[in-house]
């Protein structure tokens, strides 16, 4: 690279907010001539090539340290000091007010959280708040027999959840206190159970009892289903859970309508969009 071309590449100093220094380096370094040796001809092409030495002082840092002011999923709890990519930290955390730069004042604020009586909610893992949110927006089917007698047990729930794509160990499932029998007029009604993620984080999960013999009979399978079963208005098995079930049903409906509007406006994007209409 010729020196002239290097200088041409650098923008004029007027463009910078500060006058900058430009450092050049010979691409073919000169050797000091020994005694009696003739000087090198400095007018050759090799002697006029230079390289630009980048000034690292001016470079912007790639990551920044921030202090979280509230719980951010996947990043941390209140008062945590974390290092995040620059643009993400600025536009996703600091501008919306979820965090601030790790200034000495902010660090001092983070240290004195307990003295002010602010509760710090911590989850056992990064992914657990996501699963808690996901479970609120879904209904799982409990397909149970009408003919054979049963009382609801943990392994019933565990195997049904796994067959529908949710892996839960038996220790994590907490059923309602009242025992549920097949005689109680259960079918078509909802219950809510708690699932303890990593033995600590509590998630609420909605289940609906569905009759096996009726669903699997050829007569019902030939019927055309106009709308999926999970959209029907829920009725609670226990009256104490009725308010919470209605609240969770609204969340399901909001997601369903948003998804159908997306399909109407943009068309099918994947085969998964077809599964909006459930099979059972």
């Amino acid at each position: 690279m010729f020196a002239a071309s290097v200088l041409r590449r650098v923008a004029s100093p007027n463009c910078y907010h500060v006058r900058t220094l430009i450092v050049l380096k010979r691409s073919h370094p000169l050797r000091q001539p020994q005694v009696g040796e003739a000087h090198k001809n400095l007018q050759t092409k090799r002697m006029r090539t230079y390289e630009l030495v980048p000034l690292t002082e001016e470079e912007k840092p790639k990551t920044i340290k921030v202090v979280l002011k509230e719980l951010v999923e996947g990043y941390g709890a209140v008062g945590d000091v974390i290092e995040v990519p620059r643009n993400f930290g600025r536009f996703e955390l600091i501008v919306p007010g979820r965090a601030s730069y790790a200034s000495p004042e902010a660090l001092k604020w983070a240290e004195t959280l307990q003295e002010r009586g602010i509760e710090v909610v911590r989850f056992t893992s990064k992914t657990s708040p996501g699963t808690i949110r996901y479970l609120r927006s879904r209904v799982y089917a409990l397909i149970m027999s009408e003919k054979n007698p049963w009382t609801l047990e943990v392994w019933h729930v565990r195997s049904h959840l796994r067959s529908q794509g949710l892996v839960v160990p038996e220790e994590a499932i907490v059923l309602p206190d009242k025992p549920i029998n097949h005689n109680d007029g259960v079918f078509g009604k909802d219950i809510i159970i708690t699932i303890k993620i990593n033995g600590k984080d509590e998630a609420r999960c909605r289940l609906r009892f569905r009759p096996a013999e009726e669903l699997l009979s050829p007569a019902t399978q030939l019927q055309e289903v106009e709308q999926p079963w999970y959209i029907d208005t829920p009725t609670a098995l226990f009256e104490s859970q009725a308010a919470e079930i209605n609240q969770m049903h609204d969340e399901v409906m909001a997601i369903f309508q948003k998804r159908i509007e997306a399909i109407r406006s943009e068309g099918l994007r994947s085969i998964a969009d077809l599964n909006v209409r459930a099979i059972f």
Binding site: T124, S125, T127, S128, T131, Y134, G165, L166, V167, V168, P169, A172, I195, K196, I197, N198, G199, A203
Partner: peptide, 10 residues
Amino acid sequence: NSDDVHLLKE
């Protein structure tokens, strides 16, 4: 997802 409760997708 390394939790004991997880979706099969994850």
